[in-house]
Amino acid sequence: MAEVTETTVDEVMAELAALEDPRVREVNARHGDDHGVNLGKLRGIAKRLKTQQDLALRLWQTEDTAARLLALLVCRPKAFGREELDVMVRQARTPKVQDWLVNYVVKKCPHAEDLRVAWSADPDPVVASAGWALTTERVAKKPEGLDLAGLLDVIEAQMKDAPERLQWAMNHCLAQIGIEHPGHRARAIDIGERLEVLKDYPTPPNCTSPFAPAWITEMVRRQHDR
């Protein structure tokens, strides 16, 4: 494959700049994301570029949020080392970049479990939230070996006062335990009811509330209706 040059990065950055939409940026800003590129158009660029690990690394180094999102779409997940991913998660401060890094890259690499354990206990709440996101994935898909009761103990003790991003991640894990594991469902609902995290979160019509007891009850109902 031909070597990727800085000119190629400059061309991609110019293309992203041309897609900047103030209205998109305004909506994203409400969720803590600092870019104004429509994600459908971003995916279109990624589809055209295909997988280019060298380009992905250079786009990440720009520190631009839209460029980093594109980098995560054109990278080769299994090409990253454990330490590289640890550095990247500490650099990924916006919610969407962290979300895509965890879901599109870390989950597909051989270091996912090691990083899950390390990040979950990290003193940085943003890094810890990435660890909890990986734990939620395991709760749903590979729960063997997880101490679900122990996870509930930690959530019960720490979720109420956790910083926002970490609180959201713990709450998702709480709901997933209640949804997927009937033996822990009653306790998961009880923890949610007592802590009242996200109880009053504004939820649009026809959307499921992120309040764990409501979330668990609705998803279990849907399972029974299938």
Rank of each mutant, 00 (worst) to 15 (best):
Arg76Tyr: 00
Asp122Pro: 01
Val106Met: 15
Asp114Tyr: 00
Asp114Ile: 02
Leu198Tyr: 15
Leu166Ile: 10
Glu156Ser: 13
Ala186Val: 11
Met159Cys: 13
Leu195Ser: 10
Met88Asp: 04
Gln167Ala: 14
Glu156Ala: 14
Ala130Leu: 05
Lys107Tyr: 08
Val154Ile: 10
Met170Asn: 07
Gly192Lys: 10
Thr94Ser: 14
Leu198Pro: 00
Glu83Ala: 12
Arg187Leu: 04
Lys108Leu: 12
Leu195His: 03
Ser120Phe: 00
Val154Lys: 09
Val106Arg: 08
Glu156Cys: 06
Pro95Ser: 14
Pro110Trp: 00
Val97Leu: 11
Gly81Lys: 13
Arg68Glu: 04
Arg138Met: 10
Thr203Ser: 09
Leu146Tyr: 05
Leu70Met: 11
Val102Glu: 07
Lys141Asp: 12
Asp124Gln: 05
Glu113Asp: 12
Ser129Leu: 12
Arg82His: 03
Lys107Leu: 14
Ser120Glu: 07
Ile177Gly: 03
Ala118Met: 09
Val106Thr: 13
Val197Ser: 12
Gly192Trp: 03
Asn103Thr: 08
Ile191Ser: 11
Arg185Ile: 07
Gln158Ser: 13
Ser129Ile: 08
Thr94Asn: 10
Leu70Phe: 02
Thr135Gly: 00
Ala175Cys: 07
Asp161Ser: 15
His184Lys: 11
Glu180Ser: 11
Pro202Met: 11
Val139Lys: 05
Leu115Val: 01
Lys108Arg: 15
Ile179Pro: 01
Met159Asp: 03
Val106Phe: 09
Ala162Cys: 12
Ala118Gln: 14
Val117Cys: 03
Phe80Tyr: 14
Ser129Met: 09
Leu146Gly: 06
Glu113His: 11
Leu134Asp: 01
Leu85Cys: 06
Thr135Lys: 05
Asn206Asp: 14
Ala175Asp: 01
Leu134Phe: 05
Val106Glu: 06
Val74His: 09
Val97Glu: 08
Leu148Val: 07
Ala133Asn: 06
Gln91Met: 09
Asp153Met: 04
Ala79Asn: 03
Pro182Asn: 10
Trp168Cys: 03
Ala128Gln: 12
Arg116Asp: 00
Leu134Ser: 06
Lys107Phe: 01
Pro123Trp: 08
Leu70His: 02
Arg187Glu: 10
